[in-house]
Amino acid sequence: MSRYLRLLGVQLRASLAQAAQYRVDFLLGALLSVFWSGAAVTPLLVVYTRRPTLGGWTRPEALLVVAFFTLLKGVIQGAIEPSVTNTVEHLRKGTLDFLLLKPADAEFLVSTTRLQPWRATDLAGGMVLLAWALHDLARPVTLAAMGAALCLVGAATAILHSLWILVVALAFVTVKVDNLAFLLGSIYDAARWPATVWRGALAWVFTLVIPLAVMTTYPALALLGRLDLAHGLGALALAAAFVTVARLVWTRSIRNYTSAGG
């Protein structure tokens, strides 16, 4: 375990060194993140000029959801999406073998070799939104609630990572999946609203199939102290299930992978 933490440190340092070469990209990323966060917040602000609550959520509470949405978007763009693109490229060129030969877990390597810290400016944007929401909320947040929210963000990251690993596993079969990754990213866009906005079948899909509700609404609820233990544990169990399935599918695809020469 400590070996993998060290390895993660090395990968991160390498990515940062690389990022230092692209300072303009970093600035542009920061600028973009300001505009995208603005675009994400505008509809909510407009809604709340007309209504006091939306689906039982007040403005600062809904802002919390947008904040978690933006934070996780930073994770997707800074870590998850680049790794997928990278792996698909390896597959297409047939250079994945070099990665598989390295003496470390392949899933871990695939997920960390191409971190793009300059794409992760949304993390900062999310923190700003979080601070704004907490300020407007004007209510102290308990340490336990913060811990719970943090756990759930961890679970959300695990679920997102698993979803994208599944997409990569699909790449072993059909190579051309960058647009599938794009599709997944665009579905994630629906996670910006509190889950009570969704009705009927969509509510189910967004809780269990592509658990958007679990990713952004649950951490917000936890921070507000409104998430009961059963739902919290359910979210963690769901994340564990996603990780296990992704792991199984991944090892299976690696085993069947015969490289370009096979």
Partner: peptide, 28 residues
């Protein structure tokens, strides 16, 4: 590939869900 790209344009549907939910309590 074309249809997958087309499917990535789903933001209006997300907004549709939000706004019809808002308008359920009366017009905006």
């Amino acid at each position: 590939e074309f249809f997958v790209w087309i499917l990535t344009t789903n933001m209006p549907l997300v907004m549709l869900a939000l706004w019809t939910r808002v308008a359920a309590d009366g017009p905006v």
